[in-house]
């Protein structure tokens, strides 16, 4: 407990010390904020990757993703082959007045067509304009930053690991083959030598 009133003095000291320190206020409209690397600002669509699988729309907890598509038939790749059909995207819209920025759509997209962008200044005066259509979502795509570098000592991404493994395997095989070839060559040379020696002895 100590001296009576020391707690009061401590309280005064805290506020006084805080006054001499730098403030933490963000002066937003004047100074743009420094956002975290994976900031969830808005969702961008890379529509070339979209196969209209509808996974995102189905997983969305708010049902804020609207997708329309139609089927098109593609002529056979080889003559005499069977015609293929594929889905063509007509409409892809996200209603950001409903979106709760959970990011599930981005997680579930199997073809990497959806991305987080850190842009956040898209407030509107009319709630209808918060439904961003395909072209707008496409424009957000260009604001998606490079994925941040891995932390030092972090685990490798799976795909890079797999590719590395394959490359390693290939390299190992090639090395093995090269080794075998060298050995074969050496053996060949040895036989030659021996025959030569034998010839000399004979």
């Amino acid at each position: 407990m100590g001296i009576p009133g020391s707690g009061l003095a401590k309280g005064l000291a805290v506020t006084l010390r805080t006054m001499t320190k730098r403030t933490v206020t963000e002066q937003y409209p004047d100074v743009q904020p420094e956002l975290a690397p994976r900031t969830r600002g808005v969702i961008g669509l890379f529509e070339e990757n979209c196969t209209v699988c509808m996974l995102c729309a189905r997983e969305c907890p708010d049902w804020c993703i609207y997708i329309d598509s139609h089927k098109e038939t593609v002529p056979p790749a080889a003559p005499g082959g069977r015609e293929r059909s594929r889905n063509v995207l007509d409409r892809f819209a996200i209603d950001f007045s409903l979106c709760m920025y959970c990011g599930i759509c981005i997680e579930v997209c199997p073809f990497d067509a959806l991305f987080w962008s850190p842009e956040f200044e898209y407030a509107e005066t009319d709630i209808h304009e918060l439904t961003h259509e395909r072209d707008k979502l496409r424009e957000w795509m260009w604001t998606v930053p490079e994925p941040p570098a891995l932390d030092p000592g972090a685990e490798q991404p799976k795909e890079i690991g797999a590719a590395q493994k394959a490359a390693d395997k290939l390299a190992a095989q090639q090395a093995k083959e090269a080794e075998e070839a060298r050995q074969a060559a050496a053996e060949q040379a040895g036989t030659d030598q021996r025959t030569k020696d034998a010839g000399e002895e004979a």
Binding site: T15, T18, M19, K21, T25, Q27
Partner: peptide, 13 residues
């Protein structure tokens, strides 16, 4: 101003 700075804020600007 003083109250703002004691709370780590800027106050009216």
């Amino acid at each position: 101003k003083v109250m703002a700075h004691m709370q780590g804020r800027l106050g009216p600007m």
